[in-house]
Computed example of a mutant assay.
Amino acid sequence: MPSKIQYKFQEPVVLRLSDEERSTGIISEEHVASAITAMHRDGLVVLENAVDLEHVDKLNGLLSTEAEAMAKLPTTHFNDNSVDGKPTGNMSQGPPLDPTLMYEDVWANKPAATVLSSLLGPRPTVTYVNGNTALGGFNGARQRIHADLTFNHAQFPFAIVTNYYLIDVSPANGSTELWLGSHRDTTFRDHRNCTPTDNDDETEYDTSNDNTRDFGIRDECLEARRAWAPPIQPVVKRGSVVLRDLRLWHAGLSNPSSDPRIMLAFVHTPWWYKCPAKVVLPESAKPLVEEWASRQQDPIVYSAHFVPRDVDHKTVVFNPNFSSQNRGYLDMLPKGIGMGFIFYDVATGKEGEEAK
């Protein structure tokens, strides 16, 4: 049942960081408090002026010029998931994995890290690096409303994604539809692919790699919430980092403009969560990763698989496995709900491997 406390749910909380906060990475206690409150209440907060615009423009220039060509690659994953099966132009496109382009204010943003460690505990761990591109020239088609989870989950913050917009976004170029506050009352029962079970001891994920199942939030849940907390489509400035609770309901909408709308994504989990997925990185990036993990204030840890070669970001396998292997956590999940499925490379038994 929805909370009795009513909110207007008109716009996300946007915290404009000062240039000093951005350059030093140290944000005020007031900004920390506002961000944490917004994350608990709304499931989302925008830290504006969090990234050097030179870095943003460099990444956008590179990724936008390769977007159309990448859309034609057989290895590219499209996040269509539309009700009528029409293409949405929404594809996965991750950041370059060249250490010279792995900017700290994107890969381990200090203001975001302060908020993350306050919500998830010390040393939040990144197990997923990718991006979401809404190709230009699409109209009407949209994703089903969903949360980025395909399995039974807790009802407290256990996974938070940081999204980096590389251009200004609005409804005019496909900003994401958000159902603010939906994370507070939701469980896996609200998902279309949830199958109730009488076996309270069921704690195993399905790894059959059948990713064609019904995916999204149940219609009756959407209509009940829409009556008192309808969705919004925000305006977000480039150089912002958006923190979103992974339980939050949302949907990718089409981009009718001529230019691609690119958003990078880094998923963080608590140090104790034991997500089996790893981020594939070249060994040349190891010093950077170790530096981010060893910094004194709000370190960010990467669960990484380093390979002795360059890694082409255009061919990294889409593998959104945000599951946990911590038995204590799994034993405490709601009972009578099937565990659901995870994305898993059955052929190799490996998580997040580079595309062959």
Rank of each mutant, 00 (worst) to 15 (best):
K278F: 01
V279W: 02
V279Y: 03
V279T: 11
V279Q: 07
V280W: 05
L281Y: 07
P282W: 05
E283A: 13
E283D: 15
A285M: 06
K286M: 13
K286E: 14
P287E: 10
L288V: 05
L288F: 08
L288P: 06
V289L: 10
E290Y: 05
E290M: 08
E290V: 04
E290N: 09
E291F: 03
E291T: 08
E291M: 07
W292M: 08
W292L: 06
A293V: 04
S294N: 09
S294G: 03
R295T: 04
Q296P: 01
Q296G: 05
Q297S: 03
Q297N: 01
D298E: 00
D298C: 01
P299L: 01
I300T: 04
Y302C: 01
S303E: 08
S303I: 00
A304Q: 02
A304E: 01
A304F: 00
H305S: 08
F306I: 00
F306W: 00
F306S: 02
V307K: 05
P308W: 05
R309Q: 02
R309H: 01
R309L: 00
D310N: 07
D310S: 09
D310V: 03
V311R: 03
D312E: 12
D312R: 14
H313I: 10
H313E: 08
T315M: 10
T315Y: 00
V316E: 09
F318E: 07
F318L: 07
F318R: 11
F318T: 12
N319V: 02
P320T: 11
P320K: 12
P320G: 12
N321G: 07
F322Q: 10
S324P: 15
S324C: 15
Q325E: 15
Q325R: 15
Q325W: 12
R327P: 12
R327C: 08
G328Y: 08
Y329K: 05
Y329W: 10
L330F: 04
L330P: 12
D331N: 15
M332S: 15
M332A: 15
M332N: 15
L333R: 11
P334D: 12
P334Q: 13
P334K: 14
K335E: 11
K335D: 10
K335T: 13
G338I: 04
G338E: 09
M339Y: 14
G340Y: 13
F341T: 03
F341P: 01
F341A: 05
F341G: 05
I342G: 12
F343I: 14
Y344G: 06
Y344T: 06
D345S: 13
V346M: 11
V346Y: 11
V346Q: 15
V346I: 12
A347M: 14
A347W: 09
T348M: 05
T348S: 15
K350A: 09
K350N: 10
K350T: 10
E351Q: 07
E351S: 09
E353Y: 01
E354K: 11
E354H: 08
A355Y: 05
K356F: 03
K356R: 08
K356M: 06
